[in-house]
Design a protein around this nucleic acid. Structure first.
Lengths: 115, 115
DNA sequence: ACATCAATTCGATAGTTGTCGAAACGTCGA
DNA sequence: TCGACGTTTCGACAACTATCGAATTGATGT
């Protein structure tokens, strides 16, 4: 196969991201820490690639702690970390939160309203 | 104001359950434990009021541990516990998972596809 | 009243983890 | 090459928590 792109994907079909049980629990554990969740919110609210220094200022924690939380979010598959020379940029990995969200919603009670 | 019900609500409009930040973190912490999440799944999949003994058989944990997890899910606002004589019945509190799910989805990146 | 059973509470233990200072690493500019 | 800076790793500590056995509470049936 030479330089032949298999798909041009002009409008980019949003593939639906399937989560395993292990991934689900990993993600939930990653989200369970308040500081970490706040970090994720900060990344989400900013324009996607958030500088690491900006994050350090937004939350008030030591650099070591921030690095730890970043790694935790990364290994759980929630964010992408792009390194550009000295800096690191954080962005939310698309589809993961949606997948979790969908699964959580599927657990909702069909009937049984407080009965 | 005498005995005047403000609303008869014949078809039961599903009120949308607003979550505070504290509630969100409490819920996420409650969901972060695998056994606890499995318990919630078990409650969800069963017909809503799940017997406590059935839960103890589904997961394989000591009664004391199960009781602890039940209390944890209850105080976080995820489930209701109805006591009937000797027994306890667990049911998912309606609206809470939906509210969390909606909030998580609102954090998804608008643009910035891996860029 | 008593025994039985479901569920909870208590106390203890082992494992996990959030936090940070100090040191190390890698990059950039002078 | 050197120093400054952003980030990570290391080591340690404190707090939290999942787990369980034993004891307790509360309800039910005999």
């Amino acid at each position: 196969m030479p330089t032949r792109k298999p798909e041009p994907t002009p409008t980019e079909p949003p593939k639906p991201v399937r989560l395993t049980r292990a991934q689900r629990t990993a993600i939930l554990k990653a989200l369970s820490d308040p500081k970490r969740f706040e970090l994720l919110e900060t990344i989400a609210r900013s324009q996607c690639p958030l500088g690491c220094t900006a994050a350090h200022e937004a939350l008030s924690i030591a650099p070591a702690t921030l690095s730890h939380h970043i790694k935790e979010l990364q290994t759980s598959g929630l964010i992408d970390v792009r390194r550009e020379g000295k800096f690191a940029f954080l962005s939310i990995k698309p589809g993961v939160l949606e997948a979790l969200s969908t699964y959580l919603q599927s657990l909702s009670p069909a009937g049984c309203p407080t009965r």
